[in-house]
């Protein structure tokens, strides 16, 4: 229900960074995301492995 006539400034939601087309592309690029899948899994596994004894 956005009012297109009101400029998008001075609203809280107008301040944070929003992704560009390029960022969106890499987020859904299967090849890059396959690589990130292994990187993220590795990081998570390290946290899990060292989190308790």
């Amino acid at each position: 229900m956005e009012n297109k006539n009101i400029p998008k400034v001075y609203y809280e939601e107008s301040y944070p960074p929003v992704p560009t087309k390029s960022v969106k592309f890499w987020r859904s690029c299967v090849l890059w995301q396959t690589y990130r899948f292994f990187v993220l899994n590795f990081k998570v596994m390290k946290i899990v492995a060292f989190g308790h004894n």
């Binding site: 987020r27 690029c29 990130r36 993220l40 998570v44």
Partner: peptide
Amino acid sequence: IGLAGHWM
């Protein structure tokens, strides 16, 4: 944020 997170 990305597709990899959804796969995970």
